[in-house]
C-alpha cells in the first residue's frame, strides 16, 4: 500500500506544477487519476491525493464537485491562510531575537510534515472514508485546528507589528521623523487603499532623492 501511496504522492505534485489559467487543475488530475477523471475541479493541492482516493471510489460527478469545493476551502483556510503565516512569522521571530537557527526546524517541520503526510496518506484516507466525507468539514481534526489557529495568527500579528515598529525606530534614530512617516503611511493607506503599495514605493524613491540632493 505504501508503494501506491508514494506513487500518488509524487503524482499529486503535478497538480501544482501544471496549474494553468484555462484548465486550472484539470491536467494535474489527469495524471493523478491516470486520465480516468476528465472534469474541471478546483481543490487545494495539498488535498489532491485525498481527492484522487475519493474520485477512485465515487462516480457521481456532483458529489466529487461538492467535495472538491470543500477541500479547496478547508485547505486554503487551514494551510495558506492560517498555518503558513504562523510558521513564517514564528520563524522570523527566531531571526529577530537572534536565536539559534536550529529553532527554525520546529516551524519548518510542522508545516512540511503536516502537508506532505497529508499528500502521502491522503489517497488511502480518501478511499476509506468515502461515506464519511459529509462530515469532513466538521470533523474533529479540522474543527479543532480551525478554532485555535486563527487565534494564534492574530496574536502573532500583533507581536510582529510592534517588533517591526521597534526595529524601524532603532534604524531611524529620530522620533520626529519616525512619527511623521508613520502618520503618512497610515494616511496613505486610508486614502489610496489598494494603490497605497505603489504610492509608497514612489514615495520611497522621492524621499531617497531628497536625501541624495541634501
Amino acid at each position: 500500500m505504501f508503494k501506491v501511496n508514494f506513487k500518488q504522492f509524487l503524482k499529486s505534485l503535478a497538480v501544482q506544477v501544471l496549474l494553468n489559467e484555462q484548465d486550472m487543475q484539470l491536467q494535474g488530475y489527469n495524471i493523478l487519476t491516470n486520465k480516468k477523471f476528465k472534469h474541471n475541479i478546483n481543490t487545494n493541492p495539498y488535498f489532491s491525493s485525498v481527492m484522487s482516493g475519493f474520485i477512485s471510489k465515487v462516480k457521481d460527478i456532483r458529489r466529487v464537485e461538492i467535495f472538491a469545493s470543500i477541500t479547496a476551502f478547508v485547505g486554503d483556510d487551514l494551510f495558506w491562510n492560517n498555518l503558513k503565516p504562523i510558521v513564517l512569522i514564528s520563524s522570523l521571530l527566531v531571526y529577530i531575537f537572534k536565536l539559534n537557527f536550529y529553532f527554525l526546524l520546529i516551524p519548518f517541520l510542522t508545516y512540511f510534515l503536516s502537508t506532505n503526510l497529508l499528500r502521502l496518506f491522503g489517497y488511502e484516507y480518501g478511499r476509506k472514508n468515502v461515506d464519511n466525507m459529509n462530515n469532513f468539514y466538521s470533523s474533529f481534526f479540522f474543527k479543532r485546528f480551525r478554532f485555535f489557529l486563527p487565534k494564534i495568527r492574530y496574536l502573532l500579528y500583533g507581536f510582529f507589528v510592534i517588533l517591526l515598529l521597534y526595529v524601524n525606530l532603532k534604524i531611524l534614530n529620530s522620533i520626529y521623523f519616525y512619527g511623521i512617516i508613520l502618520l503618512l503611511i497610515i494616511w496613505v493607506n486610508f486614502v489610496y487603499k489598494e494603490f497605497a503599495y505603489i504610492f509608497l514605493i514612489i514615495l520611497g524613491f522621492l524621499v531617497e532623492l531628497f536625501f541624495w540632493i541634501l
Partner: peptide
C-alpha cells in the same frame, strides 16, 4: 548610494500591509 532612510521606509512599507489582516 546607500541610505538607512531608504530601508527604514521599506520597513514601513511592509508595515502598511497590516490592512490585509
Amino acid at each position: 548610494a546607500d541610505s538607512s532612510n531608504f530601508y527604514s521606509l521599506s520597513l514601513f512599507l511592509v508595515l502598511s500591509q497590516v490592512k490585509y489582516f
